[in-house]
Computed example of a mutant assay.
Amino acid sequence: MLNENAVKTLIDRGLEERSDLFLIDLKIGVGNKISVVIDGDNGVTVEDCMFMSRAIEHNLDREEDDFSLDVASAGATSPLVNKRQYKKNIGRTLNVKAKSDAKFEGVLTEVDDDEVTLEWKAKEPKPVGKGKIVVNKQAKIKYDDILEAKVIIKF
């Protein structure tokens, strides 16, 4: 059985060479099936996946441990799991579920080390009289409070 730490070390070496890429997930399953999911500050190309695949495959000995390797990019509908993913999605609409069961849908406008800021428009009753007015809303959500966040793809 392959050692996950050894594979992670190979991935880290590759990421040192390509600082625009980062690891989202690593799994080693039955039969030494290695599954790696990466993302990048500017997206991920097929060449990026090939680079990471080579960084791993060329440094493992098939004579010692036979394995299969799959390197993929994080899908467009996959939840955001890394702070760097939020930064690259500034200006896009997110759907965020908070641990408090609150749900937010808005444009990601700011990202820092502790939290994200979403902004959206909502209709609310007028302070005086009948009818509704459109107001700008904002929510600052700490990373620790985010249960799930997904980019909303609009066509």
Results as ranks from 00 to 15, higher is better:
residue 131 G to R: 12
residue 134 V to S: 15
residue 103 K to G: 01
residue 92 R to C: 11
residue 130 K to M: 08
residue 105 E to D: 09
residue 80 L to M: 11
residue 110 E to W: 02
residue 48 D to T: 04
residue 98 A to K: 02
residue 83 K to Y: 00
residue 62 R to H: 04
residue 107 V to F: 05
residue 132 K to H: 13
residue 132 K to P: 08
residue 51 F to M: 03
residue 44 V to D: 00
residue 132 K to S: 14
residue 119 E to M: 13
residue 60 L to Q: 08
residue 129 G to C: 08
residue 127 P to Q: 10
residue 79 P to M: 04
residue 76 A to W: 09
residue 65 D to Y: 14
residue 103 K to F: 06
residue 85 Q to K: 11
residue 132 K to A: 12
residue 121 K to F: 10
residue 114 D to G: 07
residue 127 P to D: 10
residue 123 K to T: 11
residue 50 M to P: 01
residue 58 H to A: 11
residue 44 V to A: 00
residue 126 K to D: 06
residue 77 T to M: 14
residue 95 N to R: 11
residue 113 D to Q: 13
residue 58 H to C: 11
residue 46 V to M: 06
residue 96 V to F: 06
residue 79 P to E: 13
residue 127 P to S: 10
residue 119 E to V: 15
residue 129 G to A: 06
residue 118 L to T: 10
residue 110 E to Q: 13
residue 71 V to K: 05
residue 56 I to V: 12
residue 96 V to G: 08
residue 112 D to R: 05
residue 42 N to S: 06
residue 111 V to M: 00
residue 113 D to V: 09
residue 106 G to K: 08
residue 40 G to H: 09
residue 75 G to D: 02
residue 81 V to W: 01
residue 89 N to Y: 11
residue 133 I to C: 10
residue 116 V to Q: 08
residue 104 F to Q: 04
residue 62 R to S: 12
residue 78 S to T: 02
residue 101 D to T: 02
residue 135 V to T: 14
residue 122 A to Q: 15
residue 50 M to Y: 06
residue 75 G to C: 03
residue 113 D to F: 03
residue 80 L to N: 05
residue 99 K to N: 13
residue 44 V to R: 01
residue 49 C to E: 12
residue 111 V to I: 00
residue 115 E to H: 14
residue 98 A to G: 07
residue 62 R to C: 02
residue 99 K to D: 11
residue 123 K to Q: 15
residue 54 R to A: 05
residue 134 V to T: 15
residue 95 N to L: 07
residue 124 E to D: 08
residue 109 T to S: 14
residue 72 A to V: 08
residue 97 K to M: 05
residue 119 E to L: 04
residue 114 D to V: 05
residue 130 K to D: 14
residue 54 R to L: 02
residue 128 V to K: 14
residue 66 D to I: 05
residue 39 D to T: 03
residue 120 W to N: 08
residue 75 G to N: 04
residue 58 H to Q: 15
